[in-house]
Amino acid sequence: MSGINLLQSKIEVVNIGLPLFAEALAVQDIPVVQVDWTPPAGGDERLIELLDLLSE
C-alpha cells in the first residue's frame, strides 16, 4: 500500500512561486490559488530558524 490517495482525487492547487503555473491551471478550470510568496522574515536565516522552532 502506498497510502497515497492523490490519484483518486480531483486536483486543487496552491501555487507557491511562479504565477505562470497558476495561470495555466486557471485556463483549464482547475481550482488554484496563487500565493504571493516572498522570502520569510526577509530571508534572514536566524529568524527563519526561530519561526520554525516556534511554529506548529
Partner: peptide, 27 residues
C-alpha cells in the same frame, strides 16, 4: 487579492490537495 500566507490560500481553497512550489531553492 493574492494571499501571502499558505494558510490564507488554504482557507480560500479548503479542498486543496497539491502545492506547486517554484520558489528559490534555498527556501
Amino acid at each position: 487579492w493574492i494571499p501571502r500566507a499558505l494558510d490564507s490560500a488554504i482557507a480560500m481553497l479548503p479542498a486543496a490537495n497539491m502545492a506547486i512550489i517554484s520558489v528559490p531553492g534555498a527556501f
